[in-house]
């Protein structure tokens, strides 16, 4: 008998993985982080309020797991460079060279931003969280989410030459 809660988690695993990559910038660490987060989520499943969206709840657990890991292991020191942090499809998906260059540029620019700005940009612009959801995930006021997001996007626009 399949458990709908487990299937719901499985359905958003790719999003969790992307968020994990963006936090730890290493695909191998990201797998461990996703696994840690889903294990915590399942063990703490009674604390999930089914009237809310599952994804922000999982993101918050994942982010807290990441904070725990960095506190314990100080892995933040072993960041790898931005290019390997994102697995870009080489053949399928993006074939157009220009489009691919644009993605690389966006990625590189994003990686140079301060963590606090990058984080909200990833949540809102890449993971499609609302400002409110991002505020709950990061445990910061919604006004702070908006100001970090606006500053981050202005900086990104400047780096990418978007006027």
């Amino acid at each position: 008998m399949s458990d709908p809660f487990a299937e719901d988690i499985i359905a958003v695993l790719p999003n969790l993985k992307r968020f994990a990559i963006s936090l730890c910038r290493r695909p191998d660490l990201a797998d461990d982080l996703v696994q840690t987060a889903v294990e915590r989520a399942l063990r703490g499943r009674t604390s999930y309020d089914p009237t809310t969206r599952l994804e922000p709840w999982l993101f918050r657990i994942l982010r807290n797991a990441w904070i725990d890991i960095t506190r314990r292991n100080q892995t933040r020191g072993v960041e790898v460079d931005a290019d390997t942090a994102f697995d870009m499809p080489a053949v399928d998906g993006v074939r157009d060279i220009e489009a691919r260059l644009m993605l690389d540029k966006t990625n590189t620019a994003l990686q140079t931003l301060p963590d606090e700005q990058r984080e909200v940009m990833i949540l809102v612009c890449m993971q499609e969280m609302t400002y409110k959801e991002a505020s709950a995930i990061l445990d910061i006021p919604i006004g702070t989410v908006m100001s970090r997001l606006a500053r981050g996007r202005l900086a990104l626009a400047e780096k990418l030459g978007i006027s």
Binding site: K17, G93, T106, M121, C125
Partner: peptide
Amino acid sequence: RLSDLSQAQKAN
């Protein structure tokens, strides 16, 4: 741009 980047990311 960020949304495009998100779409292009592999997430195995």
